[in-house]
Amino acid sequence: MFVTSAYAQTAPAATDPHAAPAGGAHTETGADHGGGTFPPFDATHFSSQLLWLVITFGLFYLLMKKVIVPRVGGILEHRHDRIAQDLDEAARLKAEADAAVETYERELAAARSKGHKIAETAREAAKTKAAADRTAIEAELADKLAAAETRIGEIKAKAFAEVGQIAEDTATAIVDQLIGAKASGDDIKAAVAAAKTEA
């Protein structure tokens, strides 16, 4: 209610600066509007507005130009430099780490080949030693075999020699039992020898 009346009152007041306020209830509106002019277009205040705008904005511009802009620009630049510096440092450290990894790998490869070589040599040495041992053992065994064979031959010959004696003794005893007379030693010897050659 009040709004609509007030709004209706201002509408003609804006278009016609000399329109007198319609009712007593709205006299204060007319007074405050400085003759009914729409306030933003009221030229009576332009000079003061301009002066204070020049003062305040001028001051603000100077503050921005002399203090704030260099300061914020400095902060940003400092941060930018710092980040660039940190990035450089990181790149340097990475290069170092890469070099260390490379060295490590090279050393690892060298150690591995060295180890391989050592193992190879050891294997080779072991193989030669084993071969030498085997030949030595084989030679020893062959010696032992030869000795054993000679000994067996000796024993055999001895046994054969003893076989003749035993056979003679046995034949003498058998003849003695069978015929009750002693056969002559030479006969029996001859007979045993004959039997031996037959066998």
Binding site: T44, S48, L53, F60
Partner: peptide, 19 residues
Amino acid sequence: DFSFTNASLFMVATVACAA
């Protein structure tokens, strides 16, 4: 007229707040 008005006051306030 160079009066310090309510508009001038808020110009000063604007500068004071922003700066």
